[in-house]
Nucleic acid binder design. Structure first.
Lengths: 225, 225
DNA sequence: TTGTTTTCGATAGTATTACTATCAATTTTG
DNA sequence: CAAAATTGATAGTAATACTATCGAAAACAA
């Protein structure tokens, strides 16, 4: 499976980029190297000039692929959730019990790397940290509604929708399935951040394995009523 | 009560500002007007030059109060959660049932304005939107650990800690009380954002009253086990 | 293999942002 | 009334976020 997915090419909404970065060597290097740099510097300190220097290319060449760093972030976030949805579909393909599918989904969200250190040249540990630290900045903007119309958040919504399906299988009458899923997916990311940086706001320590258990229990108990 | 709280002056961690904005007319105008401007423009488009123009003052005068707009955001966020904790203490003062205290807390978080349109010159509707749209940017930075040591997030942690107390009263053995509270408080903000901008990720529509009910049920069922 | 198109790197330039420094005028305070 | 603090105005710097142009190199098509 790992081998199979090494060759996977993820196609994203064309409006996110100016020129498809997976169509050229430079494009692929922009994507994989920017993941490392955004992780290292944080989104605020990262810019195209620094990336160009590191790639031994010109700033203007990077602008040929992406309008700005905001769009590049949206590219990374979309790529991640598209990948996560593939992963979820594969890992739940032969599972019929919706409780077990839900449990697997939460494990995947809490530990998205397990066995996939590098996918299509991307350092997945760095990308996971970008999702935790930076991804909410992709939609907490004044442009969110226009960008939503342009389909920039399709990947995340599609991933959540799939988990919503598991919940509807468990309890078709639960009235807040969408909210429960987005709260859970966002909440798991947040608990990872708190575990690392603001421990007073969580009960999980650094590299704690219990996050999916907490959320699984939370969901099941609320549905089981 | 409303009248009583009009005269309330909230004192915050002195490291957040260079000169206490509540000590002068200009300082108070910087605070109250920046709430309106950040709400209108979004944090990215907001800057001290635009604020200075609107206040008919010099950019350099604003820099005498705050290092930069990041610190000003931290000021607003700290002020909000300090205010919310006051409010929570007042509204639960004569309530002894921890379930009812929790229920009131969730109502307060979901509808923090109710009867307090303006507090100490601050437009609370605008401030609430800033909390929803911008507050996570205050800590999703590379400087989070240093700023945490400097006490910049004390107000939020203190607010969460108080709700954790209610949960511990209901079920002292629940192992994830901190995580449950931060997930809930963050989650309620997120659902408000989704209701407004990304409806596919929530079940609540614009100005929906059911958000606290969903979270109350979620918490109670997980504790009641 | 030659001509055409695409891609890339290099350079230059602009407007805006995020500050810092200085100084005189005004206001507050002791 | 004198001293101290505060403010407003101006100027300036370094970095950021782009945009435009152009020639060389690479890819590709006939």
């Amino acid at each position: 499976m790992n081998q199979l997915l090494q060759n996977l090419s993820i196609q994203l909404n064309e409006k996110i980029y100016l020129k498809n970065p997976s169509s050229s060597d430079l494009g692929n290097r922009i994507v994989s190297e920017s993941v490392l740099m955004i992780d290292e510097l944080g989104l605020e300190q990262f810019n195209f000039k620094k990336l160009a220097t590191r790639l031994n290319t010109a700033e203007s060449s990077i602008y040929r692929y992406f309008d700005n760093k905001h769009k590049l972030l949206i590219y990374h976030v979309s790529w991640f959730w598209t990948w996560m949805e593939y992963r979820l579909v594969f890992s739940t393909a032969n599972v019929h019990d919706p409780y077990e599918k839900l449990r697997l989904a939460l494990e995947n969200i809490a530990s998205p790397i397990e066995g996939f250190e590098k996918v299509a040249g991307i350092n997945m540990h760095a990308l996971e940290r970008i999702i935790v630290n930076e991804s909410s900045k992709a939609f907490l903007t004044k442009e969110v509604e226009q960008e939503n119309k342009d389909g920039f958040f399709r990947a995340y919504k599609s991933f959540c929708h799939r988990i919503e399906g598991f919940i509807k299988q468990i309890d078709p009458s639960y009235p807040y399935a969408n909210a429960l899923v987005s709260t859970t997916v966002d909440g798991i990311q947040m608990q990872k951040f708190y575990a690392e940086h603001l421990p007073a706001l969580t009960d999980f320590t650094h590299r704690e394995e219990k996050i999916p258990q907490m959320f699984y229990r939370l969901i099941i108990q609320s549905l089981a009523s």
